[in-house]
Write a protein that binds this DNA or RNA. Structure first.
Lengths: 241, 241
DNA sequence: TTACCCCCATAAACGCCGTTCACTATCGCA
DNA sequence: TGCGATAGTGAACGGCGTTTATGGGGGTAA
């Protein structure tokens, strides 16, 4: 019931917190995750390292909050692309995949923090704080717009899928966590499956490219990506681009 | 032109090298990549840290050699599964994908080292030593059996693909690195494309599962994986399992 | 057998790192 | 005006990778 005014102290505090994360991010982009250090952040801000403990209980906590911010930033970028793509769900999906790849290539270190090797400390903290890793909110929140768009497409013109009886047997029983977040299945199991399959396919392409695991085969991944996206879209009954 | 006998000194040296890597790996499996430290290895071996510099120029170099060993170990596991699967290329491919997933789930830390976030130091060294990352031998060597099996399948009964003229335009010109390693294209471009597409799809599934990026949606990834493998195989004209 | 040299290993030190603790100054509020 | 919460400091601990100088020990050649 306190007033809405953030009481100066809190404003300063919030400003320091964002400045801390900004400097951490600069270190992240230049030197990768292991380059983020409390002492370096403090140096860059003209502080001493222990002072940061007034704002975060540990370096891992700071990195975790940074990761959440980045997750959200990527989500917004994808949603923006979606809304700029018109009303057709197919066009929206194509725009979103392109936005996802573009952002990831432009921010490889951030991508690595969010989608790569789980950082040991992060997961421990995340488990307690219900944050961005294993049981995390962020992953589900990020997947939501993709899922939503696919659901629209499905409602508009159902695409052919693997027959449900086949899926219902083995796949549906594993959907507990999914149902926990998105409510009881308004969506048929086939659509959920199609969503997860497409999402892992997109992730595989982008992760491989960002991590450099395709350098040995291909000089430019763009054509591979474009053709693959077109394929997925076509399998969803979409029109050619 | 020296004798084949490894001259005692060299035998002891080689033994120490493998012991170093063994201890490094133990640290890797228990605490992830950042748990590998020279001092910890030295402690576990009853040595002092600087002694390790007689065998590796830096910690990064040790980790790199370890990564190469692990890459090779995974390759052997996949090849074993292939040879145990009979003569049918389709059965071989299915066995190989299962072996890949099983190994990765059983060795998450190793998987992270090889297929996850590139470790900063590794890449720098690898660029100079033509090792396992970006331009690396290991990635190509690992992909080879998959490619070979797919080529056999293709030779035996060609599967339908995206029409070559479409691919030749955009995709073929990017295949420089691939040709550099596998010679001039005895294989049609469509097959190479199909191989890379299937490989990224497999990678996406396994990486997502190992990194825990599917916990929010699914309690057990197995059905998702099984159905997806069946799909890929079917798209390759394979028989149902 | 003796002398030499190379190889292995060590101890000490440097400069990083995260984190803790005792302490101080300052700012906001009553 | 004074009090208390709050931000910040400096010193310290233990751990890290790495360098340097220094000591032993075994293989090889004289």
């Amino acid at each position: 019931m306190t007033m809405a005014s953030p009481s100066r102290r809190e404003r300063l505090r919030a400003a320091t917190v964002t400045e801390l994360k900004d400097h951490a991010r600069r270190l992240l982009t230049t030197g990768g995750v292991p380059a983020i250090s409390l002492r370096a952040i403090a140096r860059d801000m003209g502080m001493t390292a222990p002072a940061i403990y007034r704002y975060f209980p540990s370096l891992d906590a700071l990195v975790l909050h940074l990761a959440e911010d980045i997750y959200e930033e990527l989500r917004v970028a994808v949603e923006d692309a979606r809304h700029a793509a018109g009303a057709d769900p197919v066009e929206q999906l194509i725009a979103m995949t392109h936005a996802f790849r573009a952002w990831s290539l432009a921010h490889p270190a951030e991508f690595g923090l969010i989608f790569g090797n789980p950082v040991p400390g992060i997961d421990a903290y995340a488990a307690a704080a219900s944050a961005c890793r294993p049981g995390g909110e962020a992953a589900a929140r990020f997947g939501a717009p993709f899922l939503e768009t696919l659901a629209h497409l499905w409602a508009q013109r159902p695409f052919p899928t693997t027959p449900p009886p086949h899926l219902a047997e083995a796949f549906a029983p594993t959907l507990g966590p999914f149902r926990l977040r998105h409510g009881e299945p308004e969506l048929p199991v086939e659509v959920i499956y199609e969503f997860l399959a497409a999402w892992t396919r997109l992730y595989g392409m982008v992760a491989m490219e960002v991590f450099g695991h395709l350098h040995w085969a291909v000089s430019d991944v763009t054509p591979l990506f474009e053709i693959e996206v077109r394929r997925v879209v076509k399998s969803l009954g979409g029109a050619p681009a």
